[in-house]
Simulated scan of single mutants.
Amino acid sequence: MDTRYIRHARTHARGAIQPVAIAVLVVIAVLAAAAWFLIIKPHQDLMQADNGGHPSTPVAAGHEAAAPPANVEAMSLNQLLSEARRAMNEQRLLAPSGNNAFEFYLKVLQKQPGNQVATDALRETFPFAATAAEQAINQRDFNDAQRQIDLLAKADPANYTLTILRSKLDAGRKLADREQQLAADKEKQAQLAAQKAAADKVEADRQAELKAQQAAAEQQRLAQQRQAQQQQAAESARQQQQATTAAATPAAETGGTHAAVLVKNTAPRYPTAAMRANQEGWVELSFTITPGGDVSDVKVLDAQPRHVFDRAAIDAVSRWKYQPATQDGAPVASIKRQRIEFKL
Results as ranks from 00 to 15, higher is better:
A70N: 05
R166Y: 09
S76M: 10
D141E: 14
A313M: 11
A325Y: 02
I17S: 13
P331L: 05
Q91N: 15
Q207A: 14
L301H: 12
G52T: 11
R123T: 15
T245C: 00
V27Y: 04
D144Q: 06
K186V: 04
T131Y: 10
Q225L: 12
M88V: 12
R123L: 12
I22L: 04
I17D: 11
A184C: 02
F37K: 14
L285W: 07
Q323A: 15
L162V: 12
A21W: 15
L301I: 15
A74K: 03
V72C: 03
G172R: 03
T125A: 07
K111L: 15
R339W: 08
T3H: 02
E187V: 02
Q139G: 03
L151T: 08
K186C: 03
A312P: 08
A21E: 12
I40C: 02
E64N: 12
P55H: 02
V202Q: 15
A95E: 14
Q227R: 11
A274E: 06
L106C: 10
N78D: 03
L165E: 01
Q148G: 04
E73A: 10
V72R: 06
T57E: 15
A194H: 00
D205W: 00
R140G: 06
A183R: 07
P113A: 10
D50A: 13
A197W: 01
L46V: 01
N89C: 06
F102N: 01
Q239R: 13
T266P: 02
Q224S: 13
E218K: 10
A171I: 07
A259E: 10
V59R: 11
E103I: 10
G62K: 09
N143V: 05
A246E: 12
P127I: 11
E179A: 14
V72G: 02
D177S: 05
L169N: 11
V300D: 05
D205L: 06
V20W: 07
S334L: 06
A101K: 09
K41H: 10
A29T: 13
A312R: 11
A66G: 10
V332D: 00
V59C: 09
P324D: 08
V317E: 09
A248T: 03
A216V: 05
L122C: 12
P113S: 11
V300I: 02
D294P: 01
F104E: 07
D328T: 06
A9S: 09
A312E: 09
K196E: 04
L122W: 13
S296A: 07
H258L: 14
Y270E: 11
D297C: 02
L94A: 09
A171C: 09
T290V: 13
V30W: 08
F128N: 14
W36G: 00
W320G: 04
T161A: 08
